[in-house]
Computed example of a mutant assay.
Amino acid sequence: GLTPLMMLFNEKIVQPKLGQCTEAPTEQLPDAINEKNPVIIAGFGNFGNVAGRFLRAHNIRTTILDNDSDRVALLRRMGFKVYYGDASRYDLLKAAGADTAKLIVITIEPPSKRLEMIETIKKHFPNLQMLVRAQNRFDAYDLMNAGMLHVYRETIDTSLRVGVDVMKMLGYRAYTANRAARTFLKLDEKNLKKLAAIRDENQYIIAAREKIEELEKIIQTERGDIKLQDESFHRAEATASIFGF
């Protein structure tokens, strides 16, 4: 089931937005799939599209599934081979080659559909490795509790890139900013796994505050270490310039 905070988030934010989405016509039949590739991408919206284009640029063959008929039509006009259908269904996964594929990237909407798809794959295609998109931290909790090892929060990398650019624009060295982002991500992912197991809302809030404070203390300590390294680096540069190296 959903965590308490995820239930609140789902009620206040996710469901209203879902009501605005245009559903694909229910009477449309899924496409016949005539290829089997090592990678399946389920959902080719903004998230899946970037991953898919990246793989295509490297000549990695993918089978693309999407249940939005308008998007499928548009993508085909843009030169993508996309199959229409509900990727959470066993028969469509079977037709897409889920029994022989190595990996599947799951980005379909809504989050409940992703969880449904995960259970179908675990039951019928146990050898298929799953890489799953999470819309946010709370979605990630549910995916991790469903046993997912490869969960990708869709905003975390971009958010950290903004933070890195802010630091660089304020005068920090690129190395310092990038290292800080890597440290933050590593610690945040570690905390994510611990917090995912907490079901009680009050306990979650207490634990989350503790983890935030703990992360900030570690970052502050590392900042001191980086500052010392930077000072040593600049002294070495100055010495080198004096001696003409």
Rank of each mutant, 00 (worst) to 15 (best):
M7N: 10
M130P: 01
V162Q: 09
L2E: 11
I41M: 02
P30V: 02
E109W: 01
T107A: 13
D68Y: 01
M117S: 04
L195E: 01
I218E: 06
N34T: 12
E189D: 11
T62Y: 00
I108N: 04
V132T: 14
F54P: 01
K113T: 15
S241F: 07
V50F: 13
V151G: 02
F54M: 07
G147R: 06
L192Y: 03
Q129F: 00
Q15I: 12
V151D: 04
L115E: 09
A24F: 02
V166S: 01
G52S: 08
R209A: 11
H150E: 09
T176Q: 08
E189M: 02
V14S: 02
Y172N: 13
N178V: 00
K17F: 14
Q203Y: 03
I13R: 06
Y83A: 03
D68S: 06
Y172H: 11
I206V: 05
L192S: 00
P4F: 04
Y152W: 10
D165E: 13
R77L: 08
A207Y: 00
V82I: 05
M7C: 04
M7I: 13
Q129Y: 00
G45Q: 04
P111L: 08
A208H: 09
S232H: 09
G19S: 09
A51I: 14
N191K: 06
D31K: 05
